[in-house]
């Protein structure tokens, strides 16, 4: 699977120039816009799915992700704060704010779900979604009050059309962070098996937990600052890969990263092709494809004889469906 992924990535990489040079006929565009865009896409796909993978393992819940764990909304809140307090802030300035709030938001969320040990796996992503919405609400209120809604909208809906040389390099941060995650993969695995389990093996539970969350939050924040919010990837990709490959992070991290990159790449191409010469924001495409995949995932589990899935109303459609699915898996 990994080899197929990398092959595809390679193929598309090769395709890009021929596809778009036909329109633009300029190497400059390739260097200034196409190449950065491709790299940003790859970093986003890799980063979001790896961040999702880490968060799912550490929280012992298959449905925690940067979206359902309030990381993305916290990062957006940070960007707004940066815009408010430092109107002339650079990309890096905003990034610092986003790093701080994303990390803090994720910490608070995890601290909260650890405090209240929920019997029901449903509750964890639900609480995350609610917490994220609260932060999102504050963000929107502040933006509205200070007439920043338009500026903020850039970061609310993820898209790659503003990715140009000089204003996207921040996503490269994803690379060292993912490598760091790979180095600590076994630690994350052990912590994911519980506090007692990690203590037995002499692993410092809280330290690894918060370090892992910080890595996931930093990855997410650096993507949100450059591209904007992209949901679903951190949820779907690790789950799909784990279905085939299991949960040993050392073994699945590379697959997750490649599959994530491929997924975003395909979504981005679709977004650009469907209504060419205009383009749809990536968030939209990922949302549609992601939810389809997600429903597929639910049905796959259903077919394999697990407990029936009751969907609980559309408001929390994603969270509710998700948790019941996990509940079903518990029984086996």
């Amino acid at each position: 699977m990994a080899s197929v992924c990398s092959l595809f990535v390679g193929v598309i990489d090769l395709d890009l120039p021929s596809l778009f040079d036909g329109d633009m006929e300029q190497l400059k565009i390739l260097v200034v816009s196409r190449l950065p865009r491709l790299l940003a896409i790859l970093c986003t796909g890799v980063g979001m799915s790896v961040a999702g993978l880490i968060m799912q393992q550490l929280c012992m819940n298959k449905f925690v992700s940067p979206t359902t764990g309030a990381t993305i909304s916290s990062a957006q809140f940070g960007i707004l704060l940066a815009l408010l307090f430092m109107p002339n802030s650079t990309l890096w300035g905003r990034a610092l704010f986003a790093f701080a709030t994303a990390t803090l938001g994720t910490w608070i969320f995890v601290w909260f779900i650890q405090r209240i040990t929920f019997k029901d796996v449903v509750m964890v992503p639900l609480v995350g979604i609610m917490f994220g919405n609260v932060i999102g609400g504050i963000t929107n209120y502040l933006a509205y009050k200070y007439e920043m809604t338009q500026a903020l909208s850039t970061w609310l809906v993820g898209h790659f059309s503003l990715v140009l040389r000089g204003r996207y390099e921040l996503v490269y941060l994803v690379a060292p962070l993912v490598i760091l995650a790979f180095l600590f993969a076994n630690h994350f695995n052990i912590v994911g098996m519980g506090k007692d389990f990690s203590k037995n093996l002499g692993v410092h539970y809280n330290l690894v937990l918060f370090m892992g969350l910080t890595i996931a939050a930093l990855i997410t924040a650096s993507i949100v600052v450059v591209v904007g919010s992209i949901s679903y990837i951190g949820l779907i990709v690790p789950n799909v890969v784990a279905m085939f490959k299991g949960d040993k992070i050392r073994g699945t991290l590379v697959d997750t990263a490649l599959f994530g990159a491929l997924f975003v790449l395909v979504c981005d191409m679709l977004g650009r092709v469907v209504i060419a010469p205009y383009e749809l924001p990536i968030e939209l495409i990922v949302g549609i494809l992601g939810s389809l995949l997600f429903v597929g995932l639910l049905f796959y589990r259903l077919k394999h004889g697990r407990r029936a899935i009751r969907l609980k109303g559309p408001t929390f459609g994603c969270g509710a469906g998700v948790s019941d699915l996990e509940g079903g898996a518990d029984e086996c």
């Binding site: 012992m60 695995n189 098996m193 519980g194 007692d196 898996a329």
Partner: peptide, 27 residues
């Protein structure tokens, strides 16, 4: 005791080890 050193001398299995993780026995 340093937790890593202790982990080489004393092991505990609690009831809370209801692992739902997809790890192979070997892993």
């Amino acid at each position: 005791w340093k937790s890593k050193e202790l982990a080489k001398r004393l092991a505990i299995l609690t009831q809370s080890n209801n692992i739902q993780m997809k790890l192979t026995v070997q892993e």
